[in-house]
Design a protein around this nucleic acid. Structure first.
Lengths: 243, 243
DNA sequence: CGTTATCTTGACCGTCGTCAAACAGGGTGG
DNA sequence: CCACCCTGTTTGACGACGGTCAAGATAACG
């Protein structure tokens, strides 16, 4: 266990506390869980579909994804994980994962035995409640992604993704003219949205040409949030932002 | 509350018991929950996105779906509910649903206040555990559907759907040459698979022409399960059939 | 038996995938 | 500091999968 002036598990407590009122005892219990800090290189796997999974983690920095691969070898990213998100929550209850968890960029992850977190959740209802809420939020985002891929055209999909990602990274306020980093390749965007990298490129070009966003390397700025949101058919309901 | 020689809530206990060992006390508590039996006509809504949702239910007969609608009015079905499934589980924890629950065929639903089931789950860890597992299974199926729509072509999608549906209805054993009812229109299939009704029709024709299935009205028989499964890129892992 | 929903088929079209080549950028090693 | 390479982006030409539209056939239903 690494020495540090700040216990990284605070990050996990914070995340739980976003979803339920965590008591001081629960907080203390979580802060003293054994953990390992590990760095994952881009492309490496934190959890593998079908393998034994007895750990979960908190993503301290970087971008990770949940993804599945078809028999033909095509990848579908089903969920994006950003700093502060907890990874592998379902491993508390199922020991054979149905999907992979993979680092997209370099990731720092604090790893905890799922058994330990499970014990804490059994001892403290607030912890259990928070975990449930996180799982439900994730499912809600899955449903919205399904609507996005199943029923919206490519331009709307890309626009929708940008809206959602930006709000998750920097919150829902003062969005117009705001800029953010998108550390994903166009191929990865394609794998998320059921499109090819080439077509992602075309759509980003169109969004820029039409004055909805401005691009500079990996940073994107919203020029006309209202119109973008309109094209994207985007709403924040599925994010369940309020509890 | 209707008079009947058999308490319909047994169906709910059975469902929970599939996922965790339900004690006799828990069983008794659930069996005495107040409920209302109601019939839903095709197309009618059990839960509406954005509305207040303080109930859940057990689907006694018929077919229901979870679905969302895009701004353009296109429907995406994200989950199919069959007899025995519990509806609106997330209402125990979130009171604003992010999706609609709609009857596809005529449905008999036993309705329970979500608060009551929540109380039971708080009193009996096995109940809570079973509910969690059901939510996780649903999420797993959402991910597989995402892979299906995002990364497989139309023929594979339809084949995959048939495999999954048949196994959910009649179990995973002795599938070859088995036949089953598919009480969905081709339009509803399209809304599930991100395709149009016309194209669903074309794919079903191809599957029949190539000797993979036989169709007769709404019943479908598997002629060559192995080859179908192969075309579908289907596996049962995402169903988490064992616990 | 008439009416309506659903299925089926064909012709046509558009979105998006495929393939390929040029280009930009960032890191490494000489 | 430059040459090189590798990954990722950009662009164009072309093709195909699946959507659209419309009409006729069939089945479901009152």
């Amino acid at each position: 266990m690494p020495v540090s002036d700040k216990n990284p598990l605070i990050r996990m407590v914070d995340k739980l506390a976003e979803h339920a009122k965590v008591s001081d005892e629960a907080r203390a219990e979580i802060l003293q869980m054994p953990y390992v800090a590990r760095q994952f290189e881009p492309g490496s796997y934190f959890v593998r579909e079908g393998a034994l999974a007895d750990k979960c983690g908190i993503l301290m920095s970087g971008l990770a994804v949940c993804q599945k691969t078809s028999g033909a070898g095509d990848r579908q990213i089903v969920s994006i994980k950003i700093a502060g998100d907890i990874l592998g929550l379902q491993n508390l209850y199922l020991n054979t994962p149905d999907h992979n968890i993979q680092a997209l960029t370099r990731c720092d992850i604090i790893i905890v035995a799922s058994k330990v977190l499970k014990t804490a959740s059994e001892a403290y209802p607030a912890v259990s409640h928070a975990i449930t809420l996180m799982m439900l939020k994730e499912a809600s985002m899955l449903r919205e992604l399904l609507l996005n891929i199943g029923r919206r055209d490519a331009l709307a999909r890309v626009a929708h993704f940008l809206c959602e990602f930006a709000i998750r990274i920097d919150g829902p306020d003062k969005i117009n003219n705001r800029s953010f980093e998108l550390p994903m390749t166009q191929e990865q965007l394609g794998d998320t949205l059921g499109l090819t990298a080439v077509h992602i490129n075309r759509m980003l070009k169109i969004l820029a040409r039409d004055g909805l966003i401005a691009r500079n390397g990996k940073t994107i700025r919203f020029i006309d949030w209202d119109r973008l949101q309109d094209i994207a058919d985007f709403s924040t309901r599925h994010l369940h932002l309020h509890q």
